[in-house]
Computed example of a mutant assay.
Amino acid sequence: MEKLFVNGAPQPIAPFSHACRVGDLVFITGQMPTVPETNEMLLGTFTEQTHRVMQNLAIVLEAVGSGFEHVVQSRVFITNMGHFEEVNGVYASYFEDPLPTRTCVGVTGLAGGADVEVDMIAWVPPAE
């Protein structure tokens, strides 16, 4: 098992690693809409926040040698299910069919005042 802290990804706001690799799977901590350059939370629209979250996930995926095409499962947390379709549209734009498995959970709040958080499990293919 390897616990990973990714340079260039947003700094954690709690005690955790960005990812933990076990064999050829990587478990990625839920990413928030944090701007990596400033480490400030982007508190814009659900669309803006979802794009930032997915961009942060892309940073971690790339750093561990994976990508959205290798995501096996994800969990989406949103503070207002009235924005479910809006978040889905942005989320889906980062993938090609077939999509990974997914759970979406409506929550009463997220750290830092965010409205969107996504975590993932991805396969890490052998290095070429």
Rank of each mutant, 00 (worst) to 15 (best):
N88I: 03
Q31C: 08
F95K: 00
V6D: 06
E62L: 09
P10N: 09
Q49P: 00
A14Y: 11
E85F: 10
S17F: 15
L57N: 08
N80M: 06
Q49M: 06
M81F: 15
I59T: 15
F77K: 14
G23R: 05
R52K: 14
V64Q: 12
L110V: 08
C20L: 15
T34Q: 13
A19D: 08
E62I: 03
H51Y: 09
M41W: 08
Q49E: 14
P33D: 04
E40S: 11
D119N: 04
L42Q: 08
V76Y: 00
V53R: 00
V118K: 04
F68A: 07
G67E: 10
V72M: 02
V53F: 05
V26Y: 00
Q11M: 15
N56S: 02
V116E: 00
A9N: 09
S17A: 15
P10K: 08
E2W: 11
A19Y: 07
H70T: 04
D24I: 01
V87M: 06
N56Q: 04
A111D: 13
P12A: 08
P126F: 06
G109L: 05
V26C: 01
P12C: 08
R21N: 03
V107E: 04
W123C: 02
V53P: 00
V53G: 03
Q73T: 09
N80S: 14
E86M: 03
G65Q: 12
Q11K: 15
F84T: 10
V87C: 07
I121H: 02
P36C: 11
M54V: 01
E85H: 10
P10F: 11
E96K: 15
E37G: 06
Q55H: 08
D97I: 07
G82P: 09
F68C: 06
A63S: 15
G8L: 13
D115W: 05
I13E: 12
R52Y: 01
Q11R: 15
Q49L: 03
M41K: 08
I13F: 11
L57S: 06
K3R: 14
L43E: 05
I121P: 02
H83F: 12
L25A: 11
S74M: 08
V105Q: 07
D119Q: 00
G67P: 12
F68T: 05
E117Q: 10
E128P: 14
Q49F: 04
Q31F: 03
G82W: 14
E62P: 06
M120T: 06
E69D: 13
S17Q: 13
T38C: 10
N56R: 06
T50K: 00
Q11C: 14
E128N: 07
I28M: 02
G82L: 13
M32L: 15
I28Q: 01
G8P: 10
E96S: 13
L57H: 06
A114K: 02
R75H: 08
I59A: 06
P15D: 11
E69F: 01
V60E: 01
E2A: 13
V35H: 11
N56F: 05
A111K: 12
